[in-house]
Design a protein around this nucleic acid. Structure first.
Lengths: 72, 72
DNA sequence: CAAAAGTGTAACATATATATGACAAAGTTA
DNA sequence: TAACTTTGTCATATATATGTTACACTTTTG
């Protein structure tokens, strides 16, 4: 697959939301805390389903949360 | 993970683009034609990276292409 | 300060996204 | 109609997203 870098602002947005922990967000989305941790650390390439659920939980859109940067 | 249905309008949008086959789109995105076929048939839950590349290729946004519907 | 809560990370297991090769059916074009 | 292109699908293989358990480190709170 084409080699791009996907960046997200999930952690920033989650903290903007106020008292919302990784665990809280994970629970709402229905993934584990570890999975949410790896997504926030940009170490996973999550599925669109998870992204849609995260965007809903953070009251924003996928386009606001995820974008791509050309590899190098 | 939370049980939602993800719908996409990739096929509709691809055809709107004019002469763009599944194979063409797959090639631009950098996946196989079979993968693109399954995505268009709503049989895959693609990764955000693929979705971003598809949106770019179709000159639109992920929010325009993918959305969720509550499971029944 | 001490306890509790939140975060980062590791090892291993499982589910599934994606690749590859192949073939038939449907659609298009000459 | 006959060639050709496009699409749908199948079987099998591989890569990786996600789950589970566990533990150390950091941050918050009483």
């Amino acid at each position: 697959m084409k080699n791009i870098q996907v960046i997200n602002s999930v952690k920033v947005r989650r903290i903007e939301m106020g008292h919302l922990t990784q665990g809280d967000l994970a629970k709402v989305v229905g993934v584990t805390r570890q999975t949410m941790n790896l997504i926030e650390a940009q170490k996973y390439n999550p599925t669109i389903k998870v992204c849609l659920l995260i965007a809903a939980a953070l009251e924003t859109s996928i386009d606001q949360l995820f974008w791509m940067e050309d590899e190098e």
